[in-house]
Amino acid sequence: MWYISYWFWPVFSALVWAAMLITMLVVWATDGYPKYPSMEQTQTIAYISDIGAQGLKPFFITMSTITVVSFNVNFILERWLRHTGRLAPNTSVWQKIWSLASVIAAIAGGVGLILVTVFDTLHHPRKHRVFLGLFIGGYIVSAIFICWEYQRLGYYYRSESILRYSFWIKLFFIIVEVALAIAFGVAGNQKKYNVGAVLEWVIAFIFFFYVLSFLIDFMPAVRHKGRQSRATEMDVALAEGGDQMAAERGYFRGGAAAQEHGNGYTNGYMNGHANGDTNGHLNAHKPPAPAAVPPSRNF
Rank of each mutant, 00 (worst) to 15 (best):
S5P: 05
L15V: 14
V16S: 00
A18P: 03
A18C: 08
A29K: 10
T30R: 13
Y36F: 15
P37T: 01
S38E: 04
M39P: 09
T42D: 14
T44C: 01
A46N: 01
I48D: 06
I51T: 08
I51S: 07
A53N: 08
G55L: 06
P58G: 02
F59Y: 13
F59I: 02
F60P: 00
S64E: 04
I66F: 12
V73W: 13
I76H: 08
L77A: 07
H83T: 11
G85C: 05
R86Y: 14
R86T: 11
L87Y: 13
A88P: 04
P89N: 11
N90V: 00
S92R: 07
Q95S: 05
Q95W: 00
S99C: 10
S99Y: 00
G112T: 13
V116N: 03
H123P: 02
P125M: 06
R126F: 09
K127M: 09
F135V: 04
G137Q: 10
G138F: 09
Y139G: 03
A143D: 08
I144R: 02
F145C: 04
C147I: 04
Q151C: 08
L153A: 05
L153Y: 01
E160H: 06
I162Q: 03
L163W: 00
L163E: 02
Y165H: 07
F173C: 02
I175K: 01
E177V: 10
V178W: 08
G185N: 08
N189R: 09
Y193Q: 05
V195Y: 02
L199H: 05
L199R: 05
I203G: 15
A204H: 05
I206M: 12
I206K: 00
V211P: 04
V211M: 15
L212R: 06
M219V: 15
M219Q: 14
M219W: 14
A221R: 10
A221Y: 08
S229T: 15
R230F: 12
E240W: 04
E240D: 12
G241S: 14
M245T: 13
A246V: 03
R249H: 11
G250Q: 03
G254E: 03
A256C: 09
Q259E: 11
N263F: 10
G264A: 06
G264T: 02
G264N: 07
G268N: 05
G272P: 03
G272L: 06
G272F: 04
G276F: 02
D277W: 11
T278I: 12
G280Q: 12
L282G: 09
N283V: 01
A284D: 13
A284G: 07
K286F: 13
A289R: 13
A291S: 10
